Amino acid sequence: MSPLKEALAGVAWLSGAGNTLIQGTVTLWLPRCGHQWLRHFFCEVPSMIKLACVDTRANVVQLFVASLVLLLLPLALILTSYGHIAQAVIKIKSAQAWHKALGTCGSHLIVVSLFYGTITAVYIHPNSSYAHTHGKFISLFYTVVTPTLNPLIYTLKNKDVKRALGRLFHRDLGI
Rank of each mutant, 00 (worst) to 15 (best):
Y116K: 04
F141I: 02
H40R: 04
L30F: 03
L114N: 02
G117L: 05
H35S: 13
H99M: 14
G117K: 03
T155K: 06
K91C: 10
G117I: 02
I90F: 13
C43I: 04
G103N: 15
N150G: 10
K136H: 10
I110A: 14
I124W: 09
K91F: 03
F64L: 11
G103F: 07
C53E: 07
V54M: 09
S81K: 12
L149R: 07
P126A: 08
F42M: 07
H132K: 12
A86T: 14
L68G: 14
Y123L: 14
K136T: 07
V161P: 04
W98Y: 05
Q96H: 13
P46G: 11
K159Y: 07
P31V: 09
C53D: 09
K157D: 15
K162N: 04
L114H: 02
R32A: 13
A88T: 13
T80K: 10
G103D: 12
I153A: 02
G83K: 09
T80Y: 15
G83L: 12
A52T: 03
D160R: 14
L72S: 06
H35T: 13
K93N: 14
L72F: 06
T120V: 13
Q36N: 11
P126T: 03
Y116E: 05
V26N: 02
L102Q: 06
T27A: 15
P151Q: 09
G83R: 08
H125Y: 14
S47T: 08
G117F: 06
C53M: 08
V60T: 06
V161E: 03
K157S: 14
L63R: 01
G106K: 08
E44N: 13
S47Q: 11
Y116T: 04
A76G: 13
I124N: 02
Y123G: 06
W29R: 11
K136P: 00
W29T: 09
K157P: 00
F42E: 10
M48D: 03
T27P: 06
V89C: 09
Y123N: 08
V54R: 10
S67E: 04
V122P: 00
I124D: 01
A58P: 01
S94E: 15
V54W: 05
A76Y: 11
A121K: 05
P31M: 10
I90G: 00
S128P: 04
K162T: 05
L63W: 01
N150T: 15
P46M: 11
T155W: 03
A88L: 12
L70Y: 00
I119G: 01
P74W: 07
T155N: 05
S107H: 06
L70W: 00
L109Q: 04
H132A: 14
R57P: 00
Q96C: 08
N158A: 08
C53V: 08
V144Y: 04
F64D: 07
L75E: 10
L28V: 10
A88C: 08
T120D: 04
A121Y: 02
G117V: 05
L68N: 09
F137C: 03
H125V: 09
H35L: 13
V145M: 05
H84V: 07
A66W: 07
S139T: 15
Q62I: 05
C105E: 14
H99R: 15
L71R: 03
T148W: 12
Y82F: 15
I110K: 04
V61G: 01
I85S: 11
